[in-house]
Every structure is written in C-alpha cells, then in structure tokens.
C-alpha cells in the first residue's frame, strides 16, 4: 500500500505538470489559492481533490479511518503555525521539495528535503525520548 500510494502521488504530480504546467506542491498551491485571484480555480479544485481523493480511498478500499488524536488542541495550533511559517519561508513542503523538486533534479530541493526530514526526526527524538511527551 505504501508503494502503490507513492506511485499514485508521483503520477498526480506528473499529470499536473503535463496538463497544467504546474508543480504539485501543496503549500504553494494553498498560498496561491488564497492570494492569486486570477488563477485560483485550479488550485481550489486541487485542494478539494486532496480531500475527495482521500475520502474515495477510504470508501472504495475500506481503509480504516485513523483514530482522533489525544493531544491538547494547542499542539495542533503550534504545529500548524510552524508548518505554515516554515513552508512559506522555505518555499515548499514534502510535496513541492520532496516529490517534485527532487523529480526536477533540484539540489536546492534536495537540501530542503534533507533539512526538514532531519528536523522532524530531531523533534520527535527530543519530544518522545528526552522530554517523554505523550505523542
């Protein structure tokens, strides 16, 4: 399922580039949907598709819905702020830098991908194994 899912994610990026000439970077598409009035429709439909496609996968394949988390809401807010700040300043997220940027052989995207992976790994290490946080 991991491999099939990954193949589909890559295929979605190739389709968007081939048909619309656009990079399938979710953070960039989200910011563009909110700020670029003239070309916002394809972006909103892409974002809607992310939700609809996930729903379709769960409905068609009977995948279990992940259980709701038990952390305080403040964790979601802090994490969301960091993800928004970081992806805007760093010009991309897992999809834009990781899936698409590396697909373009971009050294800049490869560096960004290694950096956010290392930072994510370090954050989980500190929270779980140093501070003993319940995540």
């Amino acid at each position: 399922m991991a491999i099939t899912g990954g193949l589909l994610i890559g295929a979605a990026a190739v389709i968007l580039l081939s048909l619309a000439g656009r990079v399938a970077g979710v953070s960039g598409i989200l910011w563009g949907a909110l700020t670029e009035q003239a070309t916002h429709l394809w972006r909103w439909l892409f974002l809607f598709g992310l939700i609809a496609g996930g729903a379709l996968a769960h409905q068609l394949l009977g995948l279990p819905i992940p259980s709701p988390q038990s952390l305080p809401t403040s964790w979601a807010v802090i994490a969301g702020l960091l993800v928004g700040l970081g992806t805007k300043l760093g010009n991309g997220c897992t999809s834009g830098h990781g899936v698409c940027g590396i697909g373009f052989n971009s050294g800049r995207s490869a560096v960004a991908t290694v950096t956010f992976m290392a930072s994510g790994i370090a954050t989980v290490f500190v929270l779980r194994h140093v501070l003993g946080a319940p995540l």
């Binding site: 099939t4 899912g5 990954g6 193949l7 589909l8 295929a11 609809a52 496609g53 996930g54």
Partner: peptide, 8 residues
C-alpha cells in the same frame, strides 16, 4: 489522485 495516494 494525490489525495487517494496519501490516504492509501
């Protein structure tokens, strides 16, 4: 397709 892949 992207969302389907993410969920799967």
């Amino acid at each position: 397709i992207f969302g389907f892949g993410l969920a799967l």
